[in-house]
Design a binder for these strands. Structure first.
Lengths: 130, 130
DNA sequence: GCCCTGATTCGACATCTGTCAATATCGACG
DNA sequence: CGTCGATATTGACAGATGTCGAATCAGGGC
């Protein structure tokens, strides 16, 4: 995977709204978004991100779900394959943590002309320059 | 399944990293992320967002894909059901446009402690799993 | 060495998803 | 009114996905 598109040369807006995504990049982003497209995985990510120290072991977070441990492990694997998590074994336990740059990249892609704030509620006007 | 309850109301950071997502919210967000978890839909969204005027008719964007017209229509329906797009019929054509607040919400959720701030605890390695 | 605990992998299953061809709907134009 | 072009809906189908139980792997303690 190539996550180098973060620093787009001279791009003032999000690439999503600036120009059509290339197929390659769309596929790359879609894999990450698809990993987030499951409530269990979203909660897993949130649990890990909000855990003390920014990391958590499986035994700790699996208690928050009604799912079997293999299922939790499967979801963690999906998140890791998508590049959103990383993990490390320490003795008996395996600790997971979030990869901040991955989330940041996704967040940046979604930042369109709307920007971080929406001052005007009447969005009917199309203010996008041609 | 007793998660730690809300600490306090004033959320200064992203809720994803502040505290575990509630099941309701995770389900809501997951529906939107799942809609983005397909390269075709991502490109559709990008094509519409980057189109002149911020909106595009189906006949225009469908040319960029090798997919059948019903498939394009299906993906547009998914994006609309997720609250990411809205559409309007004008004569023969149907125009679609992006709902900025939806993308903004998703972008905000992903803005964790990473953001503009450089994390100091887990900066030992930035390599992603292969 | 042997077992015990934590975590992953495997195999199987039902369900969901993406795709197409065929058909239907909706509006414009003779 | 009939037809035509643009979208949407339906039905069907292969492939992906989420889930579990069982088996397996990895360390620690006896």
């Amino acid at each position: 995977m190539s996550n180098q598109e973060l620093s787009d040369g001279g791009a003032c807006c999000s690439p999503l709204a600036r120009e059509p995504l290339t197929e390659d990049w769309a596929g790359d982003l879609a894999r990450m978004f698809k990993a987030l497209g499951d409530p269990v995985r979203l909660r897993l990510l949130s649990l890990i991100a909000s855990h003390a120290g920014g990391e958590a072991c499986v035994c700790d977070i699996s208690e928050s779900f009604d799912l079997s441990q293999p299922t939790i492990s499967h979801h963690l694997k999906v998140l890791r394959a998508a590049g959103l998590l990383d993990c490390e074994r320490r003795g008996t336990w395996v600790y997971y943590w979030v990869i901040p740059s991955a989330l940041q990249q996704l967040s940046a892609v979604l930042l369109t002309e709307s920007g971080p704030v929406v001052p005007s509620e009447t969005c009917t006007s199309t203010e996008v320059p041609a």
